[in-house]
């Protein structure tokens, strides 16, 4: 897949989401963000790249030609947004997902607490068993699974980070790659004063560090350290995780990015 035009490169072969080479590996990728650096634009971009191998960032026209056949199937699980939100933002990038067979959106935002009882760990386990079955029924092929806001489930129920991770493992096993987006605001992970296993700060800190020990790739979206700027929203850094990719090499890099009012993003080399 030639991708010379795009500016965002995650791997040294200029690709963003690896395709066929890594089907045998169960990859785990983490996107961390803070308040003010929402990853929606990046998730849109990664969905587009997973489906079609294209990338509509830094291009003047957002109506790119889409081939009818998608590269791999994508399952998007969100605890923070509904389908409408992503359908419209993906449409802006020229990706039609309303009747797309390769794209499945699982909304765990709208009716989460109808399915999960916060004090009942079994209900969380059942939720993931149902998800596993749903994904198994959907595709023969190993899909790429996006999970947005899993920390919301962790913090709103009584499950521990270890229990949450073993639930996540159920989905991870079915997929070729999991892309998890998670908040990492300092206030949420500061354990200096709340060092107790039931405190949200402790739970999220523990959860994130455990995840960081199993990731292949880490992407961090951070605001500028020097303060707010009109022409830059933040920095996007790409770094290797603790477990290396076997078949590909990550191009560790840092970009500056700008998300404008119409939600279109631009990347700049740093």
């Amino acid at each position: 897949m030639s991708s010379q035009k795009q500016d965002l490169h995650i791997f040294t072969d200029n690709s963003i989401i690896p395709h066929n080479q890594v089907k045998s590996e169960h990859l785990f990728n983490l996107i961390t963000h803070v308040q003010g650096t929402s990853p929606t634009w990046l998730l849109n971009l990664l969905i587009e790249n997973s489906l079609y191998g294209t990338c509509s960032i830094n291009t003047d026209t957002n109506k790119q030609h889409r081939s009818n056949t998608s590269r791999s199937s994508v399952i998007f699980i969100s605890f923070l947004n509904d389908f409408k939100f992503y359908a419209s933002s993906l449409k802006k990038n020229g990706v039609e997902v309303q009747s797309n067979q390769s794209f499945k959106f699982i909304d765990l935002f709208t009716n989460l607490f109808d399915r999960v009882v916060p004090s009942n760990i079994e209900s969380v386990s059942k939720l993931f068993d149902d998800l596993t079955q749903e994904i198994k029924n959907l595709s023969q092929d190993k899909p790429i699974i996006f999970i947005e806001g899993l920390e919301f489930l962790l913090l709103s129920t009584d499950i521990s980070s270890i229990q949450c991770l073993s639930q996540l493992n159920k989905l991870h096993k079915l997929s070729s790659s999991v892309i998890l987006s998670c908040q990492s605001d300092e206030e949420l992970i500061d354990i200096a004063t709340f060092n107790h296993p039931t405190h949200p700060q402790y739970k999220l800190h523990d959860f994130l560090v455990r995840i960081l020990h199993r990731t292949n790739l880490n992407i961090a979206l951070r605001p500028l350290e020097t303060g707010k700027a009109k022409d830059i929203t933040g920095t996007l850094s790409i770094s290797k995780g603790c477990i290396p990719y076997e078949s590909l090499d990550i191009a560790e890099k840092e970009y500056l990015y700008l998300v404008s009012k119409d939600q279109s993003a631009k990347l700049f080399f740093r």
Binding site: I191, N195, H196, P197, Y202, H205, D206, V209, R210, H213
Partner: peptide, 9 residues
């Protein structure tokens, strides 16, 4: 043993 994980008392 991952030493970067928090320990609670």
């Amino acid at each position: 043993y991952h030493t970067s994980l928090p320990e609670f008392e």
